[in-house]
């Protein structure tokens, strides 16, 4: 396992399209629910323990080689918002492109052929981690970190929040991320033996509703 490869995949500059998405933060800012570092932290923590947990488990399971089709359907069932499903597939397709260029592998090519319009992002993330020689825990960490760093970066742009405060938020989420990542690997191992039914299904009502409100808006800075 290469620790350096993990840094490459986890780097916010990895060219996989994430910069155009706020992870629901723009909708929360527009609705007045995120206004400062404290509310950003609560937002990120909520995201981490809901859609973040699901994504981390899926990414970890994909890294262990669980069936990408099953995982992708499981993500669909856990993502009622059509706007979020579309964004997840778009990001998955973009990540697939970057991953295939970075770590060419027949396995990645096979997943790409299976989903010409994109598999859900965590499914691709897990497959990319696998192609990069990384393990399930690495995939879970990448997924979790990206799930909170995206909103934090977006809020810096949206609110003019002090970037040091935003980074402090990420640092304060580290313990939660460690715990969730470890649990995600355990769940992922059970997915391999028992199927995708064991995946968690935690949801955050305002992430779903906010995503739809955002998609309906004519003027916005971020795609989701």
């Amino acid at each position: 396992m290469s620790r350096a490869a993990l840094l490459v995949l986890a780097d916010g500059r990895f060219p996989a399209g994430g910069h155009a998405h706020s992870g629901g933060a723009e909708a929360a800012v527009r609705a007045g629910r995120v206004t400062d570092a404290a509310s950003l932290e609560a937002f990120c923590r909520g995201r981490l323990h809901t859609s973040g947990v699901v994504a981390a488990c899926v990414a970890a399971a994909a890294a262990l080689g669980a069936d990408p089709g099953d995982l992708d359907r499981a993500v669909d069932a856990r993502t009622p918002s059509p706007a979020l499903r579309a964004a997840g597939r778009r990001l998955g397709r973009q990540l697939m492109r970057a991953a295939r260029a970075t770590w060419p592998s027949p396995e990645l090519d096979a997943v790409a052929s299976l989903f010409p319009k994109g598999a859900h992002q965590p499914v691709v993330l897990g497959a990319a981690a696998r192609a990069a020689g990384l393990g399930a825990l690495d995939a879970a960490y990448c997924s979790l970190y990206e799930g909170v760093s995206g909103p934090a970066t977006a809020v810096v742009r949206l609110l003019g929040l002090d970037p040091f405060d935003a980074t402090g938020v990420l640092a304060r989420l580290a313990d939660d991320m460690d715990r969730v990542a470890r649990d995600a690997v355990e769940t992922a191992e059970r997915v391999v033996s028992d199927g995708v039914g064991v995946l968690p299904a935690r949801s955050a009502p305002l992430l779903e509703i906010g995503a739809e409100a955002h998609a309906a808006r004519a003027v916005r800075l971020f795609a989701s």
Partner: peptide, 25 residues
């Protein structure tokens, strides 16, 4: 085939952020 699988956890002891801007606010 499963078309919806959702879990909502809230109240004291629920995972962090349940009442925050992403959850119930």
């Amino acid at each position: 085939s499963c078309v919806l699988d959702q879990e909502l956890a809230c109240g004291p002891g629920a995972p962090g952020g349940w009442d925050g801007p992403a959850g119930l606010a």
